[in-house]
Structures are given as structure tokens and as C-alpha cells.
């Protein structure tokens, strides 16, 4: 593939974490949620309803392998193995391909549930900006979905769209947001919603002498606007929370909040784990049901 050199710019670091204060061996219920997305995969392990471990990895070319990789990474250093997990829910685009999952649940339901845990029962509007899709979800105080909309046909407003720009400008994706905020004056947003065409537009702007920050600002602005129009199709009300990878992009978040007139809640955990977290929560309910039947 012709992209070896350019590949470095979209590369964000894979990560993992676990809570060393919890002794899982004494646990009654160990559940897991595995979210296999088209760009990234996450695994979340919960012990008796408490967040125990998670991982954030890049999805490979094979869904089952990506699921196992994410799970193993989350478990690394904990002494736990996949066999110790009592119930696993698979979610995300590759949810039917999680080999050790007991059930697959849509990412819409999981994101709402996960956001409810991560941000609290006041959350009503959740925006998930994923690798290849953009989801707008309205939920109730229990994290149950009351309306949703997903756009995965078009790269505009997705992580991949952002990666294309990071590549074009030679800016590491993790720095794109902050760099885009280093402008004195907000430029006009790029006129094309289509990433392919926006890319040509951006190339022309660069040739005309625009500095990188300005081009990024124009693109983040267009992306924020496009996302707001999606959000407005469902009931937007506070509290508002953003999950997914782009939540880490301050350039888009700040512009989004400004256009919506709503501030997003501060995340306490990695925003990319919301789906997997929701899956692990669903797993708990399903495990209880399963045990009650016996």
C-alpha cells in the first residue's frame, strides 16, 4: 500500500488501565463488554458492577482477532484470563464476530448505557463520534434509548474524516484539536461536506498560503456544524455528553458546544470505552437473569 510514510500521523497510542485496589478473585460477577468498531476496539471488564479494567486498541483486519486482542490487553497484568469472565456482551460493527461473547447488543443501546454510567443519570443527549460513524442518542435517566440516529454512510463528521486531514497536513491526530484552536480569528468553514472534496479544498488553501492551524480550524468548524445538524434531528437537551474518539479533539468539541449552546459534561474515563462499558453493564443484567433461571 502506498501509505507507509503518511501512516504515522493518524496513529494514536493504544492504552490500557486496571484498578489495582480490586481483588477480582473474590468477585461474584465478572462481566465484559467488547466493542469492535471499524477503526478501534475496546474491552471493558467489570467486577461486581464496578469498572475494573479497560483497553483501547486499533482494530485489525480481522474482527475476532481484534476482539481477543482488546480483551487480552485489558487483562494484561491482572492475572485474569478470558475464561474467568462470566458473561460477555459484544457490540459495535463487529459484534457478531466476538468469539467468546454470550450475546450481541447494538452499539446504540450500549453507548447510551455506558454514557449513563460514565456521566451520571442526568445525561439525556449523547453524541458518539466514532471512527466511521456518528451517532446521536437521546436517553432517559436509566440510560435507555428514547431516540437515535446514526450516520455511517459519509465520512464527514467521523474519525476517519479527521484522520484524512491529519494525514494531509502532517499533524499527529492527537494534536489536531489543540492546533486548530491556535487561530486569532475563526476562518470560514470549508464549504464541502464531503471529505474527499474538502481535502482538495484544503490543498488549495495550503497552496494559497494558509497556515496549518487555519486549515484545521476551517475543517473542525465544518465538522462541528455537520454534526450539530445531525444532533438537531433528535431531541437535544441537557445534560449533553460526547463519547468516542473525537471527544478528545478539543477543536471540534469547543466549536460544537458553541454552536449548540450547550456545554458537554467533563469525562472522567477514556471517552472511547462508552460502548464496551455499556456492554459490560448489559452483561450484568443478563448474567443475573441467566443465574436466576437455574
Amino acid at each position: 500500500m502506498a501509505e507507509q510514510q503518511q501512516k504515522e500521523y493518524w496513529r494514536w497510542t493504544e492504552s490500557r488501565w486496571h484498578n489495582k485496589d480490586i481483588d477480582w478473585k473474590k468477585a461474584d460477577m465478572i462481566t465484559a463488554g467488547i466493542d469492535v468498531g471499524s477503526v478501534s476496539s475496546q474491552a471493558v471488564i467489570m467486577v461486581d458492577g464496578e469498572l475494573y479494567a479497560y483497553s483501547n486498541t486499533r482494530t485489525g483486519s480481522n474482527s475476532p482477532d481484534s476482539a481477543i486482542k482488546a480483551a487480552k490487553m485489558a487483562l494484561d497484568g491482572t492475572g485474569m484470563s478470558i475464561d474467568d469472565i462470566h458473561y460477555t456482551v459484544g457490540t459495535g460493527y463487529g459484534r457478531v464476530n466476538v468469539p467468546f461473547a454470550n450475546r450481541a447488543i447494538t452499539e446504540i443501546a450500549c453507548h447510551a448505557r455506558g454514557a449513563n454510567y460514565m456521566y451520571g443519570p442526568t445525561v439525556r443527549t449523547v453524541l458518539d463520534m466514532g471512527g466511521q460513524d456518528c451517532k446521536a442518542i437521546h436517553c432517559d435517566e436509566k440510560g435507555k434509548v428514547t431516540s437515535f440516529l446514526m450516520n455511517d454512510k459519509c465520512a464527514a463528521g467521523t474519525g476517519r474524516g479527521m484522520e484524512v486531514f491529519a494525514d494531509l497536513l502532517g499533524v499527529p491526530i492527537t494534536e489536531v484539536g489543540d492546533l486548530s484552536l491556535q487561530v486569532d480569528e475563526e476562518p470560514e468553514p470549508v464549504s464541502s461536506t464531503c471529505v474527499v472534496f474538502a481535502k482538495s479544498e484544503a490543498s488549495a488553501l495550503l497552496r494559497a498560503g494558509w497556515p496549518k492551524e487555519k486549515v484545521l480550524a476551517a475543517y473542525c468548524s465544518a465538522m462541528a456544524h455537520r454534526v450539530v445538524t445531525l444532533l438537531e434531528k433528535i431531541n437535544v437537551e441537557k445534560d449533553f455528553a460526547i463519547t468516542g474518539g473525537i471527544a478528545k479533539n478539543k477543536g471540534v468539541v469547543v466549536r460544537l458546544e458553541k454552536e449548540l449552546g450547550l456545554k458537554a459534561l467533563e469525562p472522567r474515563y477514556d471517552t472511547q470505552i462508552a460502548g464496551a462499558l455499556g456492554g459490560a453493564l448489559f452483561a450484568m443484567g443478563l448474567l443475573r437473569k441467566q443465574r436466576a433461571k437455574k
Binding site: V39, S61, N62, K153, C154, A155, V195, V196
Partner: peptide
Amino acid sequence: AQCAVFAESELVTLVHQ
């Protein structure tokens, strides 16, 4: 994939396979 950007990623997967 319906989108040119996503189709490119899909191609990468196919190349891997």
C-alpha cells in the same frame, strides 16, 4: 462502504486478506 474514505479502509482490509 458507500463512502470513498471508508472504501479505502475496506480496501486495506482486503489487501491484508
